[in-house]
Amino acid sequence: MRINRILLSTPLIVVALVIQVSILGRLQLPGAVPDLLLLVVLGLALVYGHVGGALIGFGAGLLADLAPPSDHAIGRFALVLCVIGYLAGLTKPDSGQHRSATVPLMVVIGAAIGSTLLYAGVGALVGDTAARHVGVGGLLLSATLYDLLLAPFTVPLVMALARRTEGDPLTGDGTGGQSGTAKGREAGYSWLSTGTGLKASRGRMPKAARMPREARIGGQRGGLLTRSARNKAGRIKGVKRL
Rank of each mutant, 00 (worst) to 15 (best):
R2N: 00
I3E: 00
N4S: 15
N4K: 14
R5W: 11
R5G: 06
I6F: 09
L7K: 13
P11Q: 07
L12N: 08
V15Q: 07
V18S: 00
V21W: 02
I23R: 08
I23F: 11
L24F: 09
L27G: 02
Q28Y: 05
L29T: 09
V33Y: 01
V33Q: 12
D35R: 06
D35P: 02
D35Q: 09
L36N: 05
L39E: 04
L39P: 01
L42Y: 09
Y48C: 02
H50S: 15
G53F: 04
L55T: 15
L55V: 15
I56W: 03
G59S: 15
L62A: 03
A67M: 11
A67C: 06
P69D: 01
H72P: 03
I74S: 02
I74H: 01
I74N: 04
C82N: 06
I84E: 00
Y86D: 04
Y86Q: 02
A88Y: 07
L90F: 07
T91H: 08
T91P: 00
D94R: 12
Q97H: 12
H98P: 01
R99C: 04
T102F: 10
M106A: 12
A111G: 12
G114M: 00
T116G: 03
L117Q: 07
G123C: 02
G127E: 02
A130G: 08
A131M: 13
A131W: 13
L140H: 11
T144P: 06
D147T: 13
L148V: 10
L150F: 15
A151Y: 08
P152K: 14
F153I: 14
M159P: 04
L161D: 04
L161K: 12
R163W: 06
L170I: 00
G174T: 14
T175G: 09
T175R: 12
G180C: 06
A182W: 08
R185G: 03
T194A: 14
T194Q: 15
T194C: 05
L198P: 03
L198W: 14
P206A: 11
A208Y: 09
R213Y: 09
R213V: 13
E214Q: 15
R216A: 02
I217V: 15
G218Q: 12
G219V: 14
R221I: 13
G222L: 15
G222C: 08
L225C: 03
T226M: 07
R227E: 01
S228E: 07
A229H: 13
K232S: 03
G234Y: 10
R235Y: 05
G238Q: 11
G238K: 13
K240D: 02
